[in-house]
Design a protein around this nucleic acid. Structure first.
Length: 419
RNA sequence: GUGGGUAUAGCGUAGUUGGUUAACGCGCCAGAUUGUGGCUCUGGAGAGCGUGGGUUCGAGUCCCACUACUCACCCCA
């Protein structure tokens, strides 16, 4: 039997309403802040990610779905959303228009060849916002607030915002060296993976989960102490925006994101679950990305939010989303009245009423049983009597109350009953 | 890439020290004097026990391999 590929998930008809509900909230939140939707291809030239995300990152080195197409081009399924948006922004010369250029993408499939586990899939979906051409910290802040309020409005509790600044090409190299000098004397005591990445990316030791490494790096020099004036001012401005907005946040100098394009601000929205912390949203500033992929030097900031993770949190916090009825009314029929039932269903649908009937040749009793199962609030029966008077016998499935109404009045009565 | 756990009908499970035609609940279908669901009762369909080997007179029950699922590391949404 053929199964869905490892690390993928079907969204079944009975649960798609949860996605739609979320998507609706996300679109509204984005629109409220002037972000408009962009849709970019699911695959891009591999080169884009090599240059954008960074060819030393784990994502690029071992997690991309890369293949040759029939024209011998190297193609990669999007391993993240920002590079594609930046490419689109650049290719369509949107930087020539009034800036900033604000865009969002929704339900964009993201592919990473990872070992699946709780909250981690090989194909997942993100809601992402990108703001191109805005250098001020208010842009960083509005994104953090938008993400925070969106999740808060959905009812997610225990939400914490963590921010950090990882500097810019002017001040980061110096910090890199300072940290390496600090770790060099203790390298023997670091865990194996931290030893391995010491040369390539020593910053990783800062958010290592090993107790030993956490101990060893507790007093390590912080990037925040070595920021250049520009980066420090930016970070201070961001904090004051967040202070003013009154949302709880913490500065966590250990946040290091896994994509090379970040500069200055990085942030995460984390929730505490029974199995530990789960990051639902991550983002930051990427002032060099556009230039890196061949465009003008142009500041930008954005974030990605994992749809599956948001849904997971809603689940684990017991938040129930409103489930729409599959039907407003289910039409049952007897004997030779199947044709009349069919016409009635079509007429009701034309009136904007969600209606259906039996298509399986069931007995009247079984039709009611089925109607009940679908959760239809009303049923409408057509037997010989009703057919003779061109009427419909409408029943409230919850109370059992029935009344026969002329066909012409049915839509109005139904609307009234479902209020 | 590394390590742990699990694999029995659509779903959730039971299967005792290996031994007749694999059990139960839910769900599904059909009935309970024929124009009506939700409760109850009765009956029915549906798995040969992840796949492939092996041990044995005999394996869902033991051994091996593979695969899938799952959790964790790594990394990240």
């Amino acid at each position: 039997m053929i199964q869905a590929p490892r690390g993928t998930r079907d969204v079944l008809p009975a649960e798609s309403y949860r996605w739609q509900f979320l998507e609706d909230k996300m679109r509204k939140a984005a629109a409220l802040a002037g972000y408009r939707e962009v849709r970019t291809p699911v695959f891009e030239h591999t080169e884009l990610f090599l240059r954008g995300v960074g060819d030393t990152t784990d994502i690029v080195q071992k997690e991309m779905y890369t293949f040759k197409d029939k024209g011998d081009r190297s193609i990669t399924l999007k391993p993240e959303g920002t590079a594609g948006a930046a490419r689109c922004f650049l290719e369509s010369n949107l930087y020539a228009d009034a800036l900033p250029c604000k865009m969002y993408y929704l339900d964009a499939p993201i592919f990473r060849y990872e070992n699946p586990q709780s909250g981690r899939l090989r194909e997942h979906h993100q809601f992402g916002l990108e703001c191109f051409g805005a250098k001020e910290a208010t842009a960083d802040a509005e994104l953090i607030l938008l993400a925070f309020h969106l999740l808060e409005e959905l009812g997610i509790k225990n939400l914490s915002v963590r921010i950090n600044s990882i500097g810019c090409p002017k001040c980061r190299p110096a910090y890199h060296q300072t940290l390496k000098d600090y770790l060099a004397g203790r390298i023997d005591q670091l865990c194996d993976s931290c030893k391995e990445r010491f040369e390539r990316n020593p910053l990783r030791a800062l958010d290592c989960k090993e107790k030993r490494c956490q101990e060893l790096t507790k007093d390590a020099p912080s990037m925040l102490d070595l920021l250049c004036d520009e980066c420090r001012d930016h970070f201070e401005a961001l904090k004051s925006c967040l202070d003013g907005a009154g949302i709880p946040y913490s500065v966590d100098s250990r946040i290091v994101r896994g994509l090379d394009y970040y500069t200055k601000t990085v942030f995460e929205l984390v929730t505490a679950t029974k199995d530990g912390n789960l990051t639902v949203c991550g983002g930051g500033r990427y002032d060099n990305l556009v230039e890196q992929i061949g465009g003008p030097s142009l500041p930008a900031v954005g974030f990605g939010m994992g749809l599956e993770r948001v849904l997971m949190l809603l689940d684990s916090e017991g938040i129930v989303l409103p489930r729409p009825n599959q039907y407003d009314i289910f039409i049952t029929y007897m004997g030779q009245n199947r044709g009349a039932a069919f016409r009635t269903v079509q007429d009701l649908r034309a009136q904007g009423i969600k209606a259906d009937m039996d298509h399986c040749g069931r007995s009247l009793k079984a039709q009611f049983k089925y109607a009940n199962k679908t959760g239809a609030p009303l049923s409408g029966t057509i037997g010989d009597d009703e057919a003779a008077q061109n009427a419909l016998k409408i029943k409230n499935m919850a109370t059992g109350e029935e009344k026969t109404v002329p066909a012409a009045e049915a839509p109005g009565v139904i609307r009234n009953m479902i209020g």
